[in-house]
């Protein structure tokens, strides 16, 4: 998958001009850049939901229906429990795995404690974890995570990164993440692109 001639403007601010990047399989594609550099705008463009002031050419990038996109500020219906939310992912997103299936040892110690808790009562880090696991339950060609480890403690960060690693190395999916901490992924095969 490749993006070229990408240009973006937000109000009067020019975020990118003639930018190119390639998304490779079997590695974690990392997009880094300063706050306000337009990382989310680029992710929106790749995911097909960009605003009109964004232009560029996409090669082999799947349609939105084949993209799993975890937003930076994850939002769910606060009245749903964790179980209901994950069931929603499973029912809506093309079932690939049952709960606690191939990553059970990793995820169940955390999820078992919050299974019946409403999403609105979870901490920010727990919401990120549930959301990442939700993306994991989807069967898509491209997975996009916008700062998946922001506001997450070190233990849950490790779980989230393990889930992402599993997507890349076991399921051979194309994964793109943005982060301000690329050092957290030092143990993984990565391909880093910087958005200036």
């Amino acid at each position: 998958m490749h993006i070229s001639h990408y240009s973006a403007q937000y109000g009067h601010r020019v975020l990118a001009r003639d930018f190119s990047m390639t998304l490779k399989p079997n590695v974690v594609n990392i997009l880094i850049g300063a706050n306000g550099s337009g990382k989310t705008t680029l992710l929106d463009f790749i995911a097909g939901v960009a605003t009109t002031k964004v232009t560029g050419v996409k090669y082999d990038v799947p349609k939105p229906k084949q993209i799993a996109y975890q937003l930076q500020q994850v939002q769910f219906l606060p009245t749903l429990t964790v179980a209901q939310t994950l069931k929603m992912y499973q029912e809506l997103g093309g079932k690939t795995t049952t709960f606690h299936d191939d990553v059970s040892e990793l995820i169940s110690p955390v999820l078992d404690h919050i299974w019946s808790t409403k999403m609105g009562q979870l901490s920010g880090g727990e919401i990120q974890l549930v959301s990442t696991y939700g993306q994991f339950l989807l069967n898509r060609q491209l997975y996009i995570f916008d700062e998946p480890t922001s506001n997450v403690d070190s233990h849950n960060t490790e779980i989230i990164l393990n889930l992402i690693e599993y997507l890349v190395l076991v399921r051979h999916k194309v994964v793109l993440i943005t982060t301000h901490h690329p050092e957290q992924l030092a143990d993984l095969p990565t391909h880093i692109t910087t958005l200036n």
Binding site: V49, K65, A68, M88, L92, G93, L138
Partner: peptide
């Protein structure tokens, strides 16, 4: 406006 709709769109696809 809260972002839930966008998140749901990428789960449902439509």
């Amino acid at each position: 406006e809260s972002g839930f709709y966008k998140q749901l769109y990428f789960i449902v696809g439509s």
